[in-house]
Computed example of a mutant assay.
Amino acid sequence: MILLTSEKTIKKFIENTEEPIAVVLGKYITVGLGAVRCLGRAKVPVLWLDSSSKHVGFHSKYCTGMICPHPRNTPNQYIDCLLNIGSMLNKKGVLFPVRDVEVINILKFRSQLEKYFHLPMANLEISEILFNKNLFYKRLEKLNIAHAKTYFPNDISDVEKVSKKINYPCVLKPFYSASFVLDFNTKAFIANTSSQLINLYKKALSKNHEVIIQEIIPGNVRNMHGLNAYYDKTFSPNGVFMYRRIREWPHGMGNGCYIESVRIPELEKIITPLIKDIKYHGIIDAEIRKDPRDNEFKLIEINSRCWMQCSLPARCGINIPYFAYLDAIGKNLEKPKEILENIKWLYMWEDIHSSFKSIIKRDLSFLDWIRSYKGEKEYSIFAKDDIVPFLYSLIPFYQQ
């Protein structure tokens, strides 16, 4: 690991690279480290930017770390930093955002950044259909794509009407989750009563967040599935990968901390028509829940960026970030030679929390928990060929 802190060290790093540099943007350790390893193991030089120096991922042997301005707090300085780096490059770099806040920033300044970087994703107008929940669910309704029952309130009177007819618990989702997470440290609010729904709406409004209100599809964590792919500029999928959750954290509205690869062709039939309709190209991470009431798969959301478990498809033979990199620099995509099955991805720290809560609730026995770890696994932070980030993750004050 090298931490770049001056223009001189940046130039030295650039001079020592022959291939176009991949620039990973953002602080989510599991997402960023997965992307860094996917690219680094494919011999791609990687620069990872974050606003904090205490970053576990900076210690990966597959990247060089660099401190940058915060993309939300100081967006203009953040873009200036990227432009400054770009002006030193010998060849156009490729940008890989790992959070929505980075996606929104680089797409807003796309015309300036494209002088120095490839952005392997659709423009802001198209991408916003995916990360703006209001636009997203309205498009699903227009295309008759199955999803949870959704309401679009304009004001408190609309919320009061919804509160009298929706089933509880229900969820309030912000139009833009990136800023909502930074304000409330959660990606949505769950309401269990009519009064709570109204109060949570007011709470979101106090920070200027518009929301949609949605039913919660019943069922356990194993009803949640995902599809990952890179869609090229013809809107065709490359390297489609599918998974199912085993456990999640936090329970109910969290991320998959333990997942397994599966093959369900029906999932691609749900996603590809939407992608073609909006003419999106780029990496996607789609979440789809099977509704036990009618056994129908219902689309929850699509992230237009690298995602938390992106190293699992690569472990199985489908290196999606590398596909995006190759397509961006004009090289032919490498078709997977062999696709491995029945491999799991584990974020141990969160899975321990999830498992212990399930054990306390008597939803999981201790013996079944131990047995669930059988089989081949890809780990979120631990890697035999890149052990140092894991060692730093054991230090309490280091960011994870």
Rank of each mutant, 00 (worst) to 15 (best):
P20H: 04
I329F: 07
I370W: 09
V56W: 01
E7F: 10
V262M: 11
S365E: 06
M348H: 11
Y137D: 04
L135E: 11
S206A: 13
H118G: 11
S194P: 01
I320A: 11
P71I: 02
G239D: 06
E141Y: 13
L340V: 05
E128L: 07
L267T: 12
S157C: 07
F109R: 13
V162G: 06
S355R: 09
D277S: 15
K161E: 15
F397W: 12
F96K: 14
E102I: 03
N319M: 08
N332Q: 12
A229V: 02
A383H: 15
Y116R: 06
K361A: 12
I212H: 00
I216E: 07
D385G: 08
K173I: 03
L95I: 11
I29M: 10
V23I: 15
I288R: 05
D386F: 14
K335T: 14
F356H: 07
E296V: 14
I387G: 03
I352Q: 04
K377C: 09
A178C: 08
T74E: 15
I246G: 02
K337C: 07
N332E: 15
K233C: 03
N154R: 10
D386P: 04
N144V: 03
P153F: 09
A383Q: 13
L312G: 05
D294H: 07
S6T: 15
K108C: 10
A122S: 15
N332I: 08
S355Q: 06
Y201R: 06
I126C: 05
I278H: 00
G26I: 02
I370T: 11
V262I: 15
F175H: 12
M242G: 01
E248W: 07
S236V: 04
L391R: 07
L3D: 01
F184V: 07
F152V: 05
L33C: 03
R41V: 08
K161H: 14
L364G: 04
E18I: 04
T150H: 12
D351L: 11
